[in-house]
Nucleic acid binder design. Structure first.
Lengths: 228, 228
DNA sequence: AAAATTAGTTAGGTTAGCCTAACTTTTATA
DNA sequence: TATAAAAGTTAGGCTAACCTAACTAATTTT
C-alpha cells in the first residue's frame, strides 16, 4: 500500500509524463518543483519508489512509471476526478473550488467507496474541468478537450464543463439552454464579428467568442479523426 | 490546526468522557487503549495537547477537554456521522461498513464541504447507528438512543436506524412498513410471548423481541422526561 | 575543449508519531 | 499500614518526510 505522499509522487510523475507530454519521463528537479519540495527530498522518494518497483530510475537519469506505478497513479487520478464531479454536480461547488478539496479526498482508501461513488454519479466520462475520468479498470480514454471556440463548423459536440464559474456566467449558460452533456452543433462562424452560431435543442442562437472559450466541449468526430 | 492524530485523540477523549459516561475525565491508559497505542505514546500527545490548550492535564492526573478541545472533537464527530449518513443513504453502504470509511473521511478539512454535505442530506439528526449528529454550531442534542424493544407501551417513537444490516432483515423491515424517520406507536406488549404490538401508518402488527432489538428509535416523550 | 551553469546526489539534521524498557507514583489489598 | 498491583512517566530509539549545505555529474556556453 502506497502512502499519501507516495501517491502524490506517482500522480505528479503521471501528470508530467503520460498526460501533458510526449516524453515518457521526468527529471528529479521537475518532479520536486511540481510537488513544491526540494530536489533532495524528491531524490530520496525516487529511490524509495524504485525499490518498491513503482518507477524506473537510475542515478543521474530521468524517472518513469512502471506498470504497477502507473496503475496506482491512474487510480488516484480517477478518485480525484470522481470527487471533483461529485462536489460540482451534487454539492454545487464551483468549478474553481473543487480541486483543493479533491486533493484530500483522492487519498481515501476504499475501493468500494469509489466504485459506488462512480455508480452514484452514473459513470461520468469527464470531470468539471473537462478532463477524462479513468474507468474502474484503469482505462483512460484520451479525448481531445477543447473549448467551444475551437470547435469546427459543422461538427457536433457535447458540453462537458465550463471554465468560468461565476454566477452571472452560469446563469447566462443556463439561459442559452446549455448544461453538462448537452449536444451543441456549430452552425456557422461569422467572419465579420467572430460570433458563433450554435444549435442547441433545435434552437439556433449566437454567442460571443468570450462566451465560447468558457465552454468546454468534447467532439466525437474530432476524436475519431485523431485516432485514424 | 490540529493534525489527524491530534483530532483522533480529542475525539477519543470526547467519546470516553462526555458521551459514554458521567465522569468528565479519562486516564492515560484508557485513552491509549481506545486508540490502540501504548500509554507512553498517549502520554507524549497529552502533553502536547495541553500545551496547545486543547485539554486539561496534570502529571499523574486524568485528562479532560477544554472548550477549544471540545469544539474540535465535536466537529470531528459531526463530520464522521454526516459521512456515515451519506455512505448509508446515498451510496447504499450497509450499516456495518460505514464506520471504517468514515474514520478516514472525518479528517477532510473543508468547512464548506461539510456544511454543503449537511444540506445535501437535508440536515439529518441521526446517523445510521442512531447517534445524534451535532449541528453546524457544534450543538449536540443528547437524546436517548434505545431499541424498539426498550420503548415504553403507549409511547410514540421514531425509527432512526437499524442494528442488523443483512438483506433479509432489511427486507423484513421494509415489509413492516418501516423506514428511517417512520413514526411507531407501541400499542401493547404481550406478557405471554413477549411479542410487541406496534402501530405503523395506522396499521397494527406484531413483532418479535429479536426484531424489535434491531430497530433503533428515538422517543420525544422519554427525552422530555429525562430533561425535566 | 575549458569554464560556467544547471541538474542531481549525499550527508547530516528536524519533527511527528510511534515503540520498548525501566522507572515512579497512586491505588487497592492483605 | 505495608506491600503488591495498576497507572502513569521518562529516556532513548525508530521511520517517514521534510530540510540545508556541500558535493558531483551532465550540459551549455564561450
Amino acid at each position: 500500500m502506497a502512502s499519501n505522499t507516495e501517491e502524490n509522487y506517482l500522480k505528479a510523475l503521471f501528470q508530467i509524463t503520460i498526460e501533458s507530454g510526449n516524453k515518457q519521463e521526468a527529471g528529479t528537479n521537475e518532479i520536486a518543483a511540481h510537488l513544491g519540495v526540494k530536489p533532495a527530498t524528491a531524490n530520496d522518494m525516487l529511490k524509495k519508489l524504485k525499490l518498491k518497483k513503482l518507477i524506473q530510475y537510475e542515478k543521474y537519469g530521468k524517472s518513469s512509471l512502471t506498470k504497477a506505478g502507473k496503475k496506482i497513479a491512474i487510480e488516484v487520478v480517477r478518485k480525484h476526478r470522481l470527487w471533483e464531479t461529485f462536489l460540482f454536480q451534487k454539492l454545487a461547488f464551483s468549478w474553481d473550488e473543487v480541486h483543493e478539496v479533491a486533493e484530500q479526498l483522492e487519498h481515501i482508501q476504499s475501493k468500494k467507496l469509489i466504485d459506488k461513488l462512480d455508480a452514484y454519479l452514473e459513470y461520468p466520462a469527464f470531470d468539471p474541468h473537462g478532463d477524462t475520468i479513468p474507468n474502474a479498470k484503469g482505462e483512460l480514454n484520451i479525448t481531445i478537450k477543447k473549448t467551444l471556440l475551437e470547435e469546427e463548423v459543422g461538427h457536433q459536440c457535447k458540453m462537458i464543463g465550463v471554465k468560468d464559474n461565476s454566477a452571472s456566467f452560469l446563469q447566462y449558460v443556463n439561459k442559452m439552454g446549455l448544461s453538462i452533456n448537452q449536444t451543441i452543433r456549430i452552425v456557422a462562424r461569422q467572419a465579420f464579428d467572430d460570433l458563433l452560431e450554435i444549435e442547441v435543442n433545435k434552437k439556433i442562437s449566437s454567442v460571443s467568442p468570450k462566451f465560447a472559450e468558457n465552454i468546454i466541449v468534447e467532439c466525437a468526430i474530432c476524436n475519431k479523426a485523431t485516432k485514424a
